[in-house]
Design a protein around this nucleic acid. Structure first.
Length: 612
DNA sequence: CTTAGGG
DNA sequence: CCCTAAG
């Protein structure tokens, strides 16, 4: 014979107090179970029927309970627990009552319904319902496990009602107990009467007492060797049975640390549904509280449904904050999946591929290697990073579309390695840019329009191929990014990035389009893809180009191509630079104003003539 | 912040 | 490339 401890929602006697009408609400929704819980000791017959416990049995149980109680009891009542206890105590009864209503509302509907079905009246009903109950019971005892797996969160339907409250096969399912029963059990356990109507609270208390643990995740307990072992809760699920069990579990969860939160039950369910995270986080918190108080740590994870109170708190203070704390402090399995904000997850993912890692490393002070990348990123002027990123994406896409240039660039990159980094950055940026689809698209189109003419690209390719050798040497050396300590104390990355022909061409084009001096513009338009080239860099490069062009002009022959050491800039480009320089000097204003349209047209013509 | 110029 | 002054 097993004794089941169940909570019966049915007891309407308590309803009076709660003032909730179960019949109406209860059936419809579990949430509405506000009723008081009565504990009744029931004996489970071999056939699964529930029979009211005899005095003797009660006594036995009492002893049992008392025993545990002695050990743990004070926790529950004494209020030794810090936060929880105080809360419980001070507010417990009143709050609980209040809570009960709320809570009851939520869960109880189901419970009531089920109870009614299964157990019309607390004791008698049990008997009647035994068939179902028996199964349930079985479920409770063992099923609880299943429940846990399934996950109670979804529906914390208390409805579970089944006869579980009593011990079955060594298990005690508090969930099933009625308030009266719970009260009784409470009395037995703690040796005092309680006016608390909150089933959850009662269950929790009892459970705590029984388990000598603060962690009372589940209402169902397994009694082993006179010891109660909590059953896990968890499961929620789809099966009916599972649901029942789940409900139970849920109820218990609610019970956890916060008495005050008792009301949660009801609200919790909703909450759970809404956001598992929040709930869990709360649960965790509660758990922590308990743990702290009692220092008892049960490996068992608690799944706690957030109470309304919690929810409110969360909403106010931000569930996220709580979560992290919880996680850190209390690391429970559940938390992991729940707690992590979706936010983080996604973010990580996004970044993981791209730059983020690098950045992290940087922040960490990780390897210098990564740092460079970061620095590059940083360098990008535009906080508007998005723009650059977008541009990068655009450019890359564009390149791919166009074909030639890109391919060349890629190949060169591979060879040099330098480009690889570039590409990476580009990717990263792209990743980042995801967030701005609209802009991106706009940008993209824009870019396409603006992009260099195909001809140019081809030329660049050719040149690029030519240059590769030179670049190669230079690049390889260039790639290295060196960190230099700054006077300020900060480390400065000095990364020398050789200008590729493609970049030069772009620069020239940009200048032709926007005019010299509009570096930021050029940067945006033509160098979006090169995150590491800042407007300043463009300016500097242009300055160098001018010098080179003039020098070249003076010497007449392109020195560039010949000298390995020097940057091999194709003559056409230099020529063009020269022209642009002249133009700019002559009519900078016009360019600035006209920019794209006028400039482009003119510039293009010039450019083409040059290249062609 | 972007430019311009010097180092 | 970096740094800084200037708009």
């Amino acid at each position: 014979m097993e004794m089941l401890v169940g909570i019966e929602d049915n007891d309407e006697g308590k309803l009076e107090e709660s003032g909730i009408d179960r019949s109406s609400s209860a059936l419809s929704s579990p949430k509405q179970i506000a009723n008081p819980v009565v504990y009744k000791l029931v004996r489970v017959e071999g056939d699964g029927r529930l029979v009211p416990a005899t005095d003797d049995e009660l006594i036995e149980v009492e002893d049992f309970l008392e025993f545990d109680q002695i050990e743990m009891g004070f926790d529950a009542d004494t209020g030794l627990h810090e936060g929880c206890s105080s809360i419980e105590r001070s507010s417990s009864e009143k709050l609980q009552l209040e809570c009960l209503e709320d809570t009851a509302e939520a869960d109880q509907g189901k419970l009531n319904a089920r109870l009614q079905e299964i157990i019309p009246s607390s004791a008698p009903s049990l008997n009647n319902s035994h068939s179902d109950q028996s199964q349930n019971i079985g479920g409770c005892s063992r099923p609880s496990e299943g429940q846990m797996e399934s996950g109670s969160s979804t529906s914390a339907v208390y409805s579970t009602l089944k006869p579980d409250f009593s011990m079955i096969k060594g298990e005690i399912c508090l969930d099933k107990l009625s308030i009266r029963e719970l009260h009784e059990l409470f009395k037995v356990t703690f040796g005092r009467e309680t006016t608390v109507k909150d089933k959850q609270w009662l269950k929790r208390r009892i459970a705590m007492s029984l388990t000598n643990s603060c962690n009372v995740a589940a209402t169902t307990f397994i009694v082993k060797d006179n010891k109660l072992v909590k059953k896990c809760e968890e499961g929620s699920d789809g099966n009916v049975d599972a649901v029942l069990f789940k409900d139970i579990a849920a109820g218990e969860e609610d019970i956890n640390c916060k008495d005050s939160s008792c009301a949660e039950g009801t609200g919790n369910e909703d909450n759970q549904v809404v956001s598992g995270k929040t709930l869990r986080s709360h649960e965790v918190e509660h758990d922590l509280c308990w743990e702290n108080r009692q220092i008892e740590q049960r490996a068992a994870k608690r799944i706690r449904k957030p109470t309304r109170r919690y929810i409110e708190e969360l909403s106010e203070s931000e569930s996220r904050d709580h979560n992290p704390r919880l996680l850190s402090s209390n690391r429970s399995m559940e938390l992991e999946h729940v707690s992590p904000n979706p936010y983080n997850g996604p973010t990580k993912n996004d970044f993981s591929e791209g730059r983020t890692p690098v950045t992290r490393f940087d922040s960490l002070g990780g390897s210098s290697i990564y740092i460079p990348c970061v620095s590059r990123i940083r360098r990008c002027r535009p906080r508007k990073n998005i723009m650059p990123l977008m541009n990068d994406m655009m450019s890359s896409q564009k390149f791919r579309q166009s074909g030639g240039m890109v391919e060349v660039a890629n190949s060169s990159n591979k060879v040099f390695g330098e480009h690889d980094s570039q590409e990476d950055e580009g990717r990263d940026e792209v990743l980042k840019s995801r967030s701005l689809p609209a802009k991106f698209q706009q940008r993209f189109t824009f870019e396409q329009k603006d992009e260099q003419s195909p001809t140019l690209d081809r030329i660049e390719l050719r040149q690029e191929s030519r240059l590769r050798k030179a670049d190669l040497s230079s690049n390889s050396s260039d790639d290295n990014i060196v960190t230099v300590p700054t006077s300020k104390g900060g480390m400065r990355r000095k990364h020398h990035r050789a200008w590729t022909l493609a970049e030069v061409v772009k620069l020239v084009e940009g200048v032709s389009r926007c005019g010299a001096g509009r570096w930021s513009e050029i940067k945006r338009l033509s160098f979006a893809s090169y995150s590491y080239r800042t407007s300043v860099d463009l300016k500097d490069k242009w300055r160098n180009l001018l010098k080179a062009s003039s020098a070249q002009a003076a010497s007449d022959e392109g020195m560039n191509s010949r000298k390995h050491g020097t940057v091999p800039i194709p003559e056409p480009i230099l020529v063009r630079v020269r022209e642009l320089a002249g133009k700019n000097s002559q009519v900078p204003a016009s360019f600035s104003s006209s920019k794209l349209t006028a400039c482009t047209g003119v510039a293009d013509d010039d450019d083409r003539s040059e290249y062609l």
